[in-house]
Design a protein around this nucleic acid. Structure first.
Lengths: 207, 207
DNA sequence: GTCTATAGGGGGATAGAC
DNA sequence: GTCTATCCCCCTATAGAC
């Protein structure tokens, strides 16, 4: 049983951060929600910023590992040829979208991750960006292989559009409204089709 | 000359909100930056929340009017036929992207607007959403006309993906790095092509 | 490990002089 | 309209008892 104080604080913080934002969530609110004492946060984590890092890391690290695993499978399938664009896109967005169904992680985590990319606080952006950098590079490289007709800066720009669309889909309450598996798969399918269409759009520069 | 205290406070607040986020920006920081007194905020605006509303409204309202104007021109060009998808997309994103060049509004405003769609605070979301609702409905209707092969819920979903990609492009410091007209137009062109490709992607359901 | 109590700072808002 | 001074609240972090 991992229902100890530390875990309850992480769960409460995750939920409150997702609802109201990080700045607006006080340690008092977190410990009250967790049924713990105010001092417990500093005892277990050291500071609010360290707590934020653990809230993100607990979920993001496995998520990013799954992205990399799926990407490597897609690249292995392609051998020396051009890898499948939908497979790459799905490797990137599916782990996040499917996590919506996870009753443990659940919706609040997804909104939190979605928001991570746009969070105002420079501290939070740094925390998330550090954990995301390797993933971003690997996917940009794979996208460049799958889209040989695009120059590098166009691939970078389109990769960012992809992050934006995904992040927004993740924070949108109606997009992840249904906890039903059916709804989640439909949302994922829609997102992948949209992104594939956008990524392989003509640039107006090829002959 | 509108370089009065009220305007200076609005300018300073806009800049600081964009840099650090709204919650993290204190009235003390704003008045210091504006060269005004702390009490001036409550004298001119009544409260911090009212100031936030004016910071957004001052820029968003003209922006949304321009979107509607451009959309109506695109729809008029189409007559009774199917309107041009790129024209609709450009009507939506161009006013925001081109505002990056405006030396008056400038970059901080754009990042602020981009962030508005993903801002954590429920108060801020309400302020922005209220001013955005009419625009969203008009564009969803136009997109449905331009994409008759898509069902309504798919159009809604794709419209949200479009907002996400645009908002992220607006907050990304490298995307709006250059104050140069050339860079801005290239960013806009890339975004429009990506979005058009995504919006008209096949759904996998048509025969 | 978990509590109470409090230090120490910063926040938004306001009263009242000028 | 703009200032100073201040109220009162909530925050994070910590000290020290249990």
């Amino acid at each position: 049983m991992s229902d100890d104080t530390k875990t309850r604080i992480l769960d409460a913080a995750e939920r409150l951060f997702a609802d109201a934002g990080i700045d607006a969530t006080s340690l008092r609110a977190i410990t009250a929600e967790a049924g713990a004492n105010l001092a417990a946060v500093n005892y277990h984590f050291g500071s609010k910023e360290a707590l934020v890092g653990e809230v993100y890391g607990r979920r993001i690290d496995p998520l990013n590992r799954e992205r990399i695993d799926r990407l490597q499978m897609a690249l292995r399938d392609a051998g020396d040829g051009v890898p499948s664009l939908p497979a790459i896109v799905e490797a990137f967005v599916a782990p996040a979208m499917l996590a919506m169904q996870d009753p443990d992680a659940g919706r609040s985590f997804i909104r939190l991750v979605g928001r991570a990319h746009t969070e105002a606080s420079a501290d939070v952006r740094r925390i998330v960006f550090t954990r995301f950098q390797d993933v971003a590079l690997a996917f940009q490289k794979a996208l460049a292989r799958a889209l040989p007709q695009l120059d590098r800066s166009t691939v970078q720009a389109r990769f960012k559009f992809m992050i934006g669309a995904m992040a927004y889909a993740m924070t949108d309450p109606t997009a992840c409204a249904g906890p039903s598996e059916r709804d989640v798969h439909r949302s994922l399918d829609r997102l992948v089709r949209f992104l594939v269409g956008g990524l392989q759009a003509p640039t107006g520069e090829e002959k």
